[in-house]
Write a protein that binds this DNA or RNA. Sequence first.
DNA 1: AAAACTCCGATTGTCGACAAAGTGGCCGAA
DNA 2: TTCGGCCACTTTGTCGACAATCGGAGTTTT
Lengths: 226, 226
Amino acid sequence: MLIPHPPSGTLSDLATHKLAQSIVTGELAQGQKLNEAELAERFGMGRGPLREALRHLEGMRLVKRTPNAGARVVVLDRKTLSDLYTVREALEGMACRIAAAQMSSDEIAQLGTLLDSHETQIAKQGGKVYAQSEGDLDFHYQIARGSRNQMLMDMLGSEQYQLLRMCRYRTSRNAQRTKPALNQHRQIVEALANRDGELAELLMRRHIQGAWRSISEMIDKEEQVA
Amino acid sequence: MLIPHPPSGTLSDLATHKLAQSIVTGELAQGQKLNEAELAERFGMGRGPLREALRHLEGMRLVKRTPNAGARVVVLDRKTLSDLYTVREALEGMACRIAAAQMSSDEIAQLGTLLDSHETQIAKQGGKVYAQSEGDLDFHYQIARGSRNQMLMDMLGSEQYQLLRMCRYRTSRNAQRTKPALNQHRQIVEALANRDGELAELLMRRHIQGAWRSISEMIDKEEQVA
DNA sequence: AAAACTCCGATTGTCGACAAAGTGGCCGAA
DNA sequence: TTCGGCCACTTTGTCGACAATCGGAGTTTT
């Protein structure tokens, strides 16, 4: 559902999807140069559609283009990630506030069961920590949907936030935060159930701030090693 | 400064700029179909660069594409505008909060003088109410810059918010709100000067909510006439 | 020996033409 | 008369080739 395009019609969209996937999963390294001719041949298409795909990815902030010098995969440095989490805090907080007023009780209940399934997944532990990570994204996206705000949904879901998936992929190893994160999710659902938009926004903001602190510490450690 | 691209290098970027301008100013009507061949000839270029420009504009939410059916200028219905102002409230509120901590005292003082020039412009009144409107955008953009958050700046400034300029163009006739808006701006600057991020965020949110109410009422009147 | 200049290869930017898909109108039949 | 199918035209999607630009290696000059 969060995976952007189930390979749709045009070659350009297909290329967009494949490239986005390759970038998010790290198959294409950060800062790597993207050669149009080479990629076009790899995907079995002309350069035209591929160029359009690159333009699209530029809009998603997954690649950075410089005129006459080609496109490179974006580099997620500390500042970029910090900026990203700040924007998330603003947008998801707002989504949460509105969702508290707009979601149906059924939807909120469904969110609870979603968290239940996350809990069992965590209990089973081990290997697929990543699953929780994507599951976490799903939780956040459901709330964005609950806001009934198409622009928020676009920004938080399909388009804008591939960057976030990319970040998650890089940092999926640290599973420590899954349990406190789950608790925070539960608190948020409770606030939604009580129709307390203000509290829901506050909790979501803190949740994201916490996530950022966790990521930030991890980056620090990595930098110390390097 | 807010005008996206001072016609830069590639034809594609040039086309993006020209089309964005035409759409924002209403020269191209909402919902109008955009014929690739026709536009390409009008701009004196091939269809390739123009297609890339359309892809770019799609990312800016200024046009909507449907596969095999071409591109149309976006239609600013009530719901879309409502969603837009909600997103603005979230992003600009956050920008304001951070700006209170990040801007230098000099920058904040400059904001004050910017408002002074707005005031004299309003006093001179009359014709170019629009100038205040663009000036208002400038005020908001300066605060976005003050956040030192590149992503916020991109979203609020160059790329994302051409939609807002488009809306302003449509609704530039109602000058009633210029004076209360100016007062709210002054309050915001004062909060910034006091380094009160929380208050600054709150004031900015209310300011944008007020702007939305004003726009909303105007749309109601228009709909009654129609 | 270091710096700058020049030329060459590679890559991007652009164009025109071809193929496929969709749209609308026209004709025929019920 | 109206509905349905067929056909032609328009428009989009795609490709291959040409031109402009940039980066780098080699050479020359101070």
